[in-house]
């Protein structure tokens, strides 16, 4: 039975501000899951804490709204315990690259097979608009008392440097394009990172919906020129096709160069993709082959009478002295 978009909606009250970019991302996620016809009982959306992290409550799959900055390790534990689950992580830019920066980087080294979506609004929405790690130096959205004196992180470059094997950017009001990116990110074998430009009308009066639509960015004919462009329309190919060392290097360099484009000419689409890197699940199976055939969540551990199934006699035998 095909999944309808309405099947993925919940009755939980959505308290995002009117016009918030989070709505676009939520729609795109629901559309993607519907189009993929996922089994909601086999899908888990994991989030941190922030406006954006309330998302799981609005999606009718299993939802785990965790701690500020910790969505990724929670999700890692869930996925490694049950690799058959479809795991999608959502969170804010502060959540992922401020308090959760250590996890952002180190999870890149693991390449667990899941998708991580960051709602990038350049502010801390839920705590009333302070500067987030993606807000540029000298910027002053209306919620800041004085201009930002920290530099911005480049999330795409950080993801590539950390080892993410699929790196993309989307825009929350280009919902169809975003939906396609989400589907690709979920299908990707390995750890996928999707940075989504997300207007926060309440606190960020710089990167607004109008700003991305091209307000004040006029072409020769005097018409507003959108500040985003689609990579795939330029013939850009971020995919590693045959895993030659030189090819991987070239694709990484090209993606890093692209990641610098921000502002008047901001690329959206897939910057980098490499499916030749083994996933963490495969690496665990390399250490213990049974991880693949019987991952933790599918293992029986006891008989009905409670006696354990594990047989530790060999371990004990090794320690016997008499």
């Amino acid at each position: 039975m095909a999944l309808k978009l309405s099947d993925l909606k919940t009755s939980a009250h959505n308290d995002w501000c009117p016009g918030c970019g989070d709505f676009g991302i939520l729609n795109a996620v629901q559309m993607a899951l519907a189009e993929m016809n996922v089994d909601p009982t086999n899908t888990v959306v994991v989030s941190g804490v922030g406006c954006s992290s309330k998302a799981p409550h609005f999606i009718k799959t299993y939802g785990v709204h965790t701690l500020h900055g910790r969505a990724v390790p929670f999700a890692t534990g869930i996925k490694l315990a049950n690799p058959n689950l479809e795991v999608v992580v959502e969170g804010g830019d502060g959540d992922g690259m401020g308090i959760g920066a250590g996890h952002f980087v180190n999870s890149g080294r693991r390449n667990v097979d899941m998708l991580y979506i960051i709602h990038d609004n350049e502010v801390y929405g839920l705590t009333k608009g302070q500067a987030s790690p993606t807000l540029g130096l000298g910027m002053k959205p209306k919620s800041l008392p004085s201009p930002n004196i920290n530099q911005a992180i480049n999330p795409l470059m950080l993801a590539i440097a950390s080892g993410y094997t699929w790196v993309a950017r989307g825009y929350s009001y280009d919902v169809r394009h975003l939906k396609d990116l989400i589907i690709k990110g979920i299908h990707h074998k390995g750890y996928a990172f999707l940075d989504v430009l997300q207007p926060c009308p309440t606190y960020n009066d710089i990167q607004t919906k109008e700003y991305w639509a091209g307000e004040g960015n006029l072409d020769d004919a005097g018409r507003p020129k959108p500040r985003t462009y689609k990579l795939e329309e330029t013939g850009y190919d971020g995919v590693v096709h045959n895993n030659a060392e030189a090819e991987v290097e070239q694709k990484i360099q090209q993606a890093i160069l692209k990641s610098f484009e921000f502002g008047d000419h901001t690329p959206i689409g897939v910057l980098y993709q490499n499916e030749f890197v083994p996933t963490y699940e495969e690496r665990l199976a390399g250490r213990s082959p049974s991880y693949k055939t019987s991952p933790p969540a599918s293992q029986e551990i006891a008989r009905p009478d409670g006696t354990p199934l594990a047989n530790i006699n060999k371990l004990l035998e090794d320690l016997r002295v008499f």
Binding site: V46, V64, T66, L67, R70, P73, F74, A75, T76, G77, I78, K79, L80, A81, N82, L85, P296, A297
Partner: peptide, 11 residues
Amino acid sequence: TMAIGGGLAGV
């Protein structure tokens, strides 16, 4: 938090 994730997944 990973261990708690495992707990949530029934492991």
